[in-house]
Design a protein around this nucleic acid. Structure first.
Length: 466
RNA sequence: GGCGCGAUAGCAAAAUGGUUAUGCUGCGGAUUGCAAAUCCGCCGAUGCCGGUUCGAUUCCGGCUCGCGCCUCCA
C-alpha cells in the first residue's frame, strides 16, 4: 500500500508517511453554526469522510477531529436578532449539520470539539505566544505579530508585501503592523465574552483550531483539511500560531484542501463559487427533500476533490443513473455477508492516489459489468461482495438494492402502495399468460404514468419507482 | 496590482511521452410478445501558437479564455 496525498504546502503529491503509524491524527475545519449548511459546505465533510475511511482501511487507529465553531459574530448577530442565547442558535445548527451530513453517509468523527468548550486552552496558548514574544496586547486586543514568524506566507505562497499590496487588510490603531491578526478581542456588554488576562473578550477565529488540535490531538498532526478558501488567512495563521507556540515543531504534515462547488449564475450564465455571502447557495436540507443523500454524495465524489465541481440538475441526474446501474448489478445477487470479501486492487489503488474518486467509481462500474456478464452464480457473489466492500470505502451502496429501487433511498412516496402495485403486476402476469398483451401493456402504461416502471425478467416481473 | 488553479469527445470526468478510461447520450446488433434491464459493436477528444523528442493531449515557453484567493467564506 502506498497512499499519497497532495500537500498544499509543497504543492505536490507526496507519499503519506504518518507521524505515528499507530495512531493517525486528522483534523478538518467544521462549520460555523449560524445557518443550515449548503452543498459547498458538505463537500469537505464528504471528501474527508472518504479519506477517513481510506485511512481506517490502512491503519489500525485513526483519530479524526472535526470542530464546531460556535463563537462567531454571525452567531451573535442571529442570537441578538432572535433574542436568544448564542447557545440556542449554535446547538440548533450544529445538530442540523450532523443530521444533514449523516444523510450523506458521513461517519461521526471521533472528536467534535466546540470552541466555547476550549476557551481556557485558547487563553493559555495566547499567553504562551505573548511570553515567547510572538504576540502583543493592546487596547484589550491581543494580536499575533506576523513579522515575528519568518515563514509566514509559506502555505498560501505569498509574501507580506504582496498581501499588503492588495490594501484590503484592516488597518487599526492597536495594530503594530497592518498584517497582524487578532488572537483575542474585547467584548462589549451586548456580546458574549469570557474573562481573560486582557479583560472580558472573545477569541479571534484562527486560535480555536490551533488550541483544539493542541488539546485533543497533540503538537503534530498528520492531516489538516478544509476548503480551499481556508488556506488564507485561516490555515496560514494557524501554522504561525501553533508553530510559534511549540518552538518550531511541525504543526501539520499534510495540508489538504478541497476545491469549490460552483453554480451557474442565472444572469451571466457563468459559473461562480457557491457561498453564503453571494447568496447563491442551495442547502443540503433542500436537496434532501427530493434527492436521496447517497445521490448527493455520489455527485460530490464524481469529480476529484481538488477540482472545481459545478452543481447542476444534470450532475444529480447523472449521479442517480450511475447509482441505479450499480444497484442493478447487485439486484438478485444473494449477498454472502460472511465471505471474506476483499476490496478490488485497482479500486483501492485509485483511492490511494490522492483520493482519486472518479477513477475509483470507474472501477465500481467495471465490477458491475463483470457481475452482469458472468453466468456463474458463485462468481457473481464474489464480485458483488467485492463491489459492496469497495463501495463502502466511498460510503456508497449502503441500501438494499430492492429497497433502493422501491423506496428510492427512503424518499417518502405518496403514490400507490406496494401492495396495490403488486396486485396490478399479478393481474398483468395473468393477462400475459392469456396473451392479452393489450391489457398487459395497458397496466404497464398506467403504472408508468404513476412513476412505476416494470421490468420482466426470467424470474418474473420486478418494479421500481422512477 | 500580487498569487494560484484549470481548459479532454454531445454532457460529466479520469489517465497517459507511442497501446480501451468510465458513466450518460447517439447509432447498429443480440435478447424480449413489445418494452425495460443486460450484453456485443460503432461514432466521437485532448483551447491556440511555438519548442524539446523518432513520436506530445501528456514535458517546456508564450497566448487566449475561464475560475479562485489576497476581506467573512467549505
Amino acid at each position: 500500500m502506498t497512499l499519497s496525498v497532495y500537500n498544499t504546502l509543497t504543492q505536490q503529491k507526496e507519499i503519506f508517511e504518518p507521524h505515528n503509524p499507530e495512531n493517525i491524527k486528522m483534523y478538518v475545519c467544521g462549520p460555523t453554526v449560524y445557518n443550515y449548511i449548503h452543498i459547498g459546505n458538505a463537500r469537505p465533510a464528504v471528501v474527508f469522510d472518504t479519506l477517513f475511511r481510506v485511512l481506517k482501511h490502512h491503519f489500525p487507529k485513526v483519530t479524526y477531529a472535526r470542530n464546531i465553531t460556535d463563537v462567531d459574530d454571525k452567531i451573535n448577530k442571529a442570537a441578538h436578532e432572535q433574542g436568544v442565547d448564542i447557545r440556542v442558535i449554535s446547538d440548533k445548527f450544529a445538530q442540523a449539520y450532523r443530521d444533514d451530513i449523516n444523510q450523506l453517509n458521513v461517519l461521526a468523527p471521533d472528536i467534535e470539539p466546540r470552541a466555547t468548550e476550549n476557551i481556557d486552552q485558547m487563553i493559555n496558548m495566547i499567553e504562551r505566544l505573548i511570553e515567547k514574544g510572538f504576540a502583543y496586547a493592546a487596547e484589550g486586543h491581543v494580536l499575533f505579530n506576523v513579522k515575528s514568524y519568518e515563514k509566514y506566507g509559506e502555505l498560501s505562497k505569498r509574501s507580506l508585501d504582496d498581501m499588503l499590496a492588495g490594501a484590503r487588510v484592516e488597518v487599526a490603531p492597536y495594530k503594530q503592523y497592518a498584517g497582524d491578526f487578532v488572537l483575542w478581542k474585547p467584548s462589549t456588554d451586548d456580546v458574549p465574552g469570557w474573562e481573560s488576562p486582557w479583560g472580558t473578550g472573545r477569541p479571534g477565529w484562527h486560535i480555536e483550531c490551533s488550541a483544539m488540535i493542541e488539546r485533543h490531538l497533540g503538537t503534530t498532526i498528520d492531516i489538516h483539511g478544509g476548503g480551499q478558501d481556508l488556506t488564507f488567512p485561516h490555515h496560514e495563521n494557524e501554522i504561525a500560531q501553533s508553530t510559534c507556540a511549540h518552538d518550531g515543531e511541525t504543526y501539520v504534515k499534510y495540508w489538504m484542501h478541497n476545491g469549490y462547488i460552483t453554480i451557474q449564475n442565472k444572469e451571466s450564465s457563468s459559473q461562480e463559487k457557491m457561498s453564503k455571502s453571494l447568496g447563491n447557495f442551495i442547502t443540503v436540507r433542500e436537496l434532501l427533500e427530493n434527492i436521496p443523500g447517497e445521490v448527493i454524495r455520489f455527485a460530490l465524489l464524481s469529480a476529484h476533490y481538488r477540482s472545481q465541481l459545478n452543481w447542476s440538475l444534470d450532475l444529480i441526474e447523472q449521479a442517480y443513473t450511475a447509482l441505479d446501474r450499480l444497484y442493478t448489478a447487485l439486484r438478485d445477487v444473494p449477498i454472502n455477508t460472511e465471505s471474506d470479501d476483499k476490496v478490488s486492487d485497482s479500486f483501492i489503488a485509485a483511492l490511494d492516489d490522492d483520493l482519486n474518486t472518479p477513477k475509483a467509481i470507474a472501477e465500481l462500474h467495471n465490477l458491475a459489468k463483470q457481475i452482469n456478464k458472468t453466468t456463474s452464480g458463485a462468481e457473481k457473489q464474489t464480485l458483488a461482495a467485492q463491489l459492496l466492500k469497495s463501495a463502502s470505502l466511498l460510503g456508497l451502496l449502503t441500501h438494499e438494492p430492492e429497497s433502493w429501487f422501491k423506496s428510492r433511498g427512503n424518499q417518502t412516496s405518496d403514490g400507490l402502495s406496494d401492495e396495490a402495485i403488486e396486485a396490478l403486476i399479478q393481474e398483468r402476469v395473468d393477462a400475459k399468460k392469456n396473451k392479452d398483451f393489450a391489457r398487459s401493456d395497458q397496466i404497464r402504461d398506467e403504472l408508468k404514468a404513476q412513476g412505476i416502471e416494470l421490468e420482466d425478467t426470467r424470474e418474473g416481473t420486478r418494479w421500481q419507482r422512477a
